[in-house]
Computed example of a mutant assay.
Amino acid sequence: MTTRPDRIARVRLSSLRLPLTTPISDAKVLTGRQRPMTEIAFLFAEIGSEQGHEGVGFGYSKRAGGPGQYAHAREIAHELVGEDPNDIARIWDKLVWAGASVGRSGLATQAIAALDVALWDMKAKRAGLPLAKLLGAHRDSVRCYNTSGGFLHTPVEEVLKNATASLERGIGGIKIKVGQPDTRTDLARLDAVREHLGEDVPLMVDANQQWDRATAHRMGRAMERHGLVWIEEPLDAYDHAGHAALATALDTPVATGEMLTSVTEHAELIRAGGADVVQPDAPRIGGITPFLRLAALADHEHLQLAPHFAMEIHLHLAAAYRSEPWVEHFEWLEPLFEERLDIRDGRMIVPDRPGLGITMSEQARAWTTETYST
């Protein structure tokens, strides 16, 4: 008996903006390269099939680019209609070539990400499995650390309170931002956080690409006494040689990759030996399909994995990575979804709901500024 293939019947795109309670500043703001962040733009994709299966996915932009992602997705969305939703890799190639005139990385593939994620969500729902299980999970929970409580606009006393609150919530590690104009301020803040946490709590720092090579080497050596899990983005994201030299010189692992926008860019970083910890972002590199390609490459090189942001997606992908990864905890996106992720004993629990286990909230609908259906 043969089963008739399912077909994609409809695609709905939504552009929305999530406001942040407090303007957010990291080292890029202090160097004058960016303004404080006050909102995040999201592109949501909802895909339905002829047989009644549905999937939801999303991508985002933290500053400029959100309208561009939406516009590009709107131009290519019709390419999905009539396709078998299970043929995700082929559909990804079709979509990327539909817009190849403007590139096969960056904004062009970020617009595809929401569609790709929605197809994987549908496929896992169709199988009645959490996405991690569909991919082949190595674990049912993943170590998690908090970033949102340690930004540079936050006074150190509040950073300490935020760290305590995160640990009490069940989060396992703490990351703080560095990159102050006066490096002594960074070291003093780090000293205070380490003293507050004690020696046993995993601690990371993130310079958001704002050090030069000499500063990164000096600061890396000065911070080694704190036993950091990693130093993140000490240099420009495309300075692979600089990251490689730093990784060789320091005992502390070097983490980077969140700003790269394709598997090819990550492959160049890995080939150069520029990361002990790779930090891909599925929405930034085009979705789950390219993320899996990159994860296979990173695993082959025995690298640690710590995906950037979007924990609702990355929890599943990290759970399917062979060696023990980390997932970054940001509560910022929680208002977008009806569900909440379970965190306890330092770990984020893979939900037992099928697919990603997320549903767009009424608040997300209220923040929507534009929609398109095909």
Rank of each mutant, 00 (worst) to 15 (best):
Val350Asp: 01
Pro19Leu: 07
Lys175Ser: 01
Gly179Ser: 02
Asn208Ile: 10
Ala296Ile: 14
Val11Leu: 06
Ser166Thr: 06
Glu83Ala: 14
Pro5Thr: 12
Arg74Ser: 10
Ser101His: 11
Gly52Phe: 04
Thr38Lys: 00
His308Gly: 03
Asp299Trp: 08
Ile313Tyr: 02
Leu292Cys: 05
Leu336Gln: 06
Asn86Thr: 14
Val96Cys: 10
Ala275Arg: 11
Ala214Gly: 01
Ile176Pro: 00
Ala207Arg: 12
Trp120Ala: 03
Glu324Ala: 13
Thr2Arg: 10
Arg90His: 08
Gln363Tyr: 06
Thr369Asp: 09
Gln110Asn: 02
Glu331Lys: 07
Leu305Arg: 01
Ser105Asp: 13
Val263Phe: 11
Arg221Thr: 12
Gly99Ile: 04
Leu16Trp: 13
Ser15Leu: 15
Ala364Cys: 04
Val11Gln: 06
Glu157Ile: 08
His153Phe: 06
Ser361Cys: 05
Gly57Ser: 11
Ala272Ile: 11
Arg284Lys: 05
Trp367Cys: 00
Thr31Ser: 15
Ala275Asn: 12
Tyr321Asp: 00
Phe330Gln: 02
Met223Gln: 02
Glu39Gly: 05
Gly242Thr: 09
Ala255Phe: 13
Gly99Cys: 15
Lys177Asn: 01
His153Thr: 02
Val229Thr: 14
Asp93Ala: 11
Leu135His: 02
Glu331Phe: 10
Pro290Glu: 12
Pro36Gly: 10
Ala216Ile: 07
Gln304Ile: 06
Met259Trp: 04
Thr371Asn: 08
Tyr70Glu: 01
Ala192Val: 01
